[in-house]
Design a protein around this nucleic acid. Structure first.
Length: 286
DNA sequence: CTCCAGGGATGAT
DNA sequence: ATCATCCATGGA
């Protein structure tokens, strides 16, 4: 199999796929095997080039947001020490453009789960209910459509280790499949209206809504606050406050991180999770 | 306001 | 080998 090639300067494929925004890519053949929408894809990075097969160069470049002006985005970040360290740690990490239903469904199943569990749930749902494809002798399953999931029972979903999330995923799948919730049409909504629509879906609260806005609707100012980010924010920006409310954090983030807050959040998140010293232990005692 | 639901990887003992 | 911990949403 001959691979095709696309230029990808200022991009780090492995780091991007390991940053908790997407959960189905697996290592294989010196690169990564996964799916972009319904297409099974292999992609490998060598220096500033991506070598790939299974989709067009245009699809690859669009999925990995190779057109995002990363240097300019980083220049818009605040210059504090936490942000600078995170930025340094996350070179080449990009916010990818995910299919809307796949992203929404995945983050509904992510609630109260850690990354390893989310990967497992995604894998099981794909394997049981998604269409199989081949790439370089690897079998890859597309994420099951809303229609497919809408036709399942809560019992079947529970068997995929969804627990109480099964009910929410099923209810939301049915709203999407019936057209009552039109995810594609929502691309035209302003941020606040989009967030409101998303939060009306079962299993979607503020955190999940912001993830979907950031990863599937390219709202780069959306700033999801999970426990990791909450720890970082409290430690770095409210060091001697004993009690900081969710509202205070929210107001601070919206004001402080600017129009690319979503990127700032992703960098702080990835640095906190993978950066070692700043990980759980170091922050716990504060 | 508090409490709880369901579950598997992860790290401590 | 056993045990506590992690964790976002929604309903009681």
């Amino acid at each position: 199999m001959r691979l095709r090639q696309v230029s990808a300067p200022n991009f780090d494929l492995a780091r991007t796929l390991d940053s908790g925004q997407v959960f189905h890519w697996e290592k294989g053949n010196a690169g990564f095997v996964g799916a972009i929408g319904g297409k099974a894809v292999f992609v490998e990075q060598r220096g500033g080039e991506l070598f790939f097969t299974g989709a067009s160069g245009k699809t690859i470049a669009n999925y990995f947001s190779l057109d995002h002006p990363l240097a300019e985005i980083c220049r818009s970040f605040p210059g504090d020490s936490a942000m600078t360290a995170a930025q340094d740690f996350c070179r080449g990490l990009r916010i990818i453009r995910q299919p809307r239903w796949e992203c929404l469904a995945t983050f509904i199943t992510s609630s109260m789960k850690q990354v390893a569990h989310i990967r497992q749930i995604s894998h099981t749902l794909r394997e049981r209910y998604g269409e199989a494809q081949q790439v370089l002798s690897h079998e890859v399953h597309a994420y099951p459509s809303a229609e497919r999931i809408a036709g399942l029972t809560e019992q079947e979903l529970r068997k995929c280790a969804l627990g109480y999330r099964a009910k929410n995923l099923l209810a939301t799948a049915r709203l999407v499949a019936s057209g009552e919730a039109n995810l594609e049409k929502w691309t035209g909504l302003p941020d606040e209206a989009l967030r409101t629509r998303l939060c009306e879906l079962p299993g979607v609260g503020a955190k999940v809504a912001n993830c979907v806005m950031l990863f599937a609707y390219e709202r780069l100012s959306a700033f999801p606050i999970d426990v990791w980010i909450e720890r970082v924010l409290k430690q770095q920006y409210f060091p001697r406050k004993r009690k900081v409310t969710a509202q205070q954090l929210r107001a601070f983030c919206d004001r402080y991180f600017g129009k690319h807050g979503g990127y700032a959040q992703q960098y702080l998140f990835h640095h906190a999770r993978k950066g070692g010293a700043a990980g759980k232990k170091g922050l716990a005692g504060c």
